[in-house]
Design a protein around this nucleic acid. Structure first.
Length: 507
DNA sequence: GCGATCAGCT
DNA sequence: CACAGCTGATCGC
């Protein structure tokens, strides 16, 4: 998920970082956005999913500690007005916007004039002149969310939402992880950071809008699982500089899932941009030569766990814990089935480590076997088994790791196993205890089924993110951020943007 | 009828 | 909580 922090150190929008943030974390005094402000212009021209700025459903629970409560509710919108120097529409509109069932786009709700339909729908190349405006279509909120809504005067069908500005790389014809917006105007190269649904969403076999640049591993998955025409898929090696449309592009290992990359752009004017996609930051990543020389002008930052409450141990420690626990249970009950939950890709190192330590093969279903073999990792491939009786180590979809399911699964294995020990590796499995001492993790047991949630994360923890900012970017564009974290950087203000269809459950 | 998208769920 | 999906319903062609 993504929110946006905006702040361009080189525009008049820049404000001093100070105590002048109001209760909502926005600048107390609104900047007067100059008509020529490139960032604000880009913002409006490229469009955004405004739906997430709507108030949360009234039944939404608020955090107990109250810290994020500040960001909830109508004040967010008020401060966006202030922050961008937009005049608030008169009377009544705010209520409509903030009421739970509202589906209207905020341009309509606030009475802001939206650019002409084509531009709004398709985005405009960054750096183009200010667009003209026209009355926004007057369509009530009966349409689906995440659309501009309604049909045009001729009754033509609706177009997808515009590609949000934070997926466009300024001064280039590039977008990152932007496949659900159709053809993005001015985009001649579409980058895919990694093969997870919330990033490749919109890619179907009908894709014809331009070349897709990604790592070789991701390229294989895109072709194999999404049936994308090979002519559109352009694999790039890690740590190799390519020149694409006059821009130097380098992929770096993202330490997320197989095939995930950070994308480093060096423009001909000397500006350097880094898009992290999803990543788990580390010291060694930071020591990469490309992050050591010069300053990153613009950092697009994955901030999934950008809250001090998220503290997870190094992955190696969690893996060590999982292996030790598995060994302990097997010693007690040799006929224990070890289950590891995983999404389509990711978490491989957890079950690979168990496989190596116990010297057993990895069983998983045919579709996952096909995916895992496509990685081209000999150490993994040689351990994959297609016989569920021959191995006490099974990989199942994360969603299936529930007591009832696992009990039934055990029964289907026909007495070969007498108990199940399952691991759910996810960053959301955090607790004060587990953050410090893995051995304090308490499993959930029911009958013969034991389930451990383990804090194995493929995203950065708060402190890892904080440390990563020592790359010292001039500006950060991100999806969800806490002001305190950026006190040393020239960040101005932020708001939240949802990435997925259900993302507007937060604000 | 089919593929794409969406709400709800975990 | 909501990772990264998954399922079933609905929409548009």
């Amino acid at each position: 998920m993504v929110a946006a922090i905006a702040g361009d150190a080189e525009t008049d929008l820049t404000l001093p970082i100070s105590d002048d943030l109001d209760d909502n974390g926005f600048p107390a005094s609104p900047p007067t956005a100059p008509a020529t402000s490139s960032f604000a212009d880009d913002f409006y021209r490229s469009g955004i999913d405004w739906s997430s700025l709507q108030a949360p459903p009234s039944h939404r629970r608020r955090p107990a500690d109250g810290t994020t409560e500040k960001f909830c509710g109508p004040l967010v919108q008020k401060n966006l007005f202030q922050a961008w120097g937009i005049e608030k529409p008169a009377s009544g509109m705010t209520e409509k916007v903030c009421g739970p069932p509202v589906q209207k786009n905020l341009f309509q709700a606030w009475g802001i004039q939206k650019p002409p339909r084509e531009e709004a729908a398709q985005g405009v190349p960054v750096g183009a002149g200010a667009s003209s405006s026209s009355p926004s279509p007057s369509v009530a909120g009966s349409g689906r969310k995440r659309r501009w809504g309604g049909s045009d005067e001729n009754g033509a069908s609706r177009k997808p939402v515009a590609c949000p500005f934070y997926k466009q790389i300024p001064g280039t014809p590039f977008t990152v992880d932007a496949f659900r917006y159709g053809a993005v105007e001015g985009c001649s190269a579409y980058f895919l950071s990694h093969f997870h649904y919330d990033h490749y969403g919109g890619l179907t076999k009908k894709w014809c809008h331009g070349p897709i640049y990604c790592t070789a591993l991701t390229a294989r998955l895109v072709k194999m699982l999404l049936s994308i025409d090979s002519a559109y898929v352009c694999p790039l090696e890690l740590d190799t500089e390519y020149v694409i449309d006059g821009v130097k592009v380098t992929f770096l290992e993202a330490n997320h899932c197989p095939g995930a990359a950070l994308i480093h752009f060096r423009l001909s004017d000397g500006k350097t941009y880094l898009h992290t996609g999803d990543f788990r930051a580390s010291k060694s990543m930071q020591l990469h030569p490309l992050l050591q020389t010069g300053r990153i002008s613009l950092l697009y930052l994955d901030t999934t766990y950008c809250n001090p409450k998220y503290k997870f141990p190094p992955q190696e420690d969690v893996i060590d814990f999982v292996v030790r626990t598995a060994q302990r249970y097997l010693k007690k009950q040799p006929k224990t089935l070890i289950v590891v939950g995983a999404y389509s890709i990711g978490k491989e190192n957890v079950y690979l480590a168990i496989s190596q330590a116990l010297e057993v093969p990895i069983y998983t279903d045919a579709s996952r076997r096909r995916i895992l073999h496509s990685f081209g990792w000999p150490d993994l491939s040689k351990r994959i088994s297609s016989c569920n009786q021959s191995s006490p180590l099974h990989v199942l979809p994360l969603a299936s790791l529930q007591h009832e399911n696992l009990k039934k699964y055990l029964e289907t294995l026909d007495q070969r196993f007498l108990a199940v020990l399952a691991f759910r590796p996810t960053g959301w499995t955090f607790s004060e205890a587990a953050g410090k001492e893995l051995d304090l993790i308490k499993p959930s047991s029911r009958g013969r089924v034991t389930i451990y949630g383990v804090p194995y994360s493929e995203h950065s923890s708060f402190s890892e993110l904080r440390d990563f900012l020592k790359v010292n970017p001039q500006t950060v564009v991100t999806l969800l951020v806490f002001a305190a974290m950026f006190s040393n950087h020239r960040i101005i203000f932020f708001w939240l943007v949802s990435e997925t269809s259900k993302g507007n459950s937060h604000c």
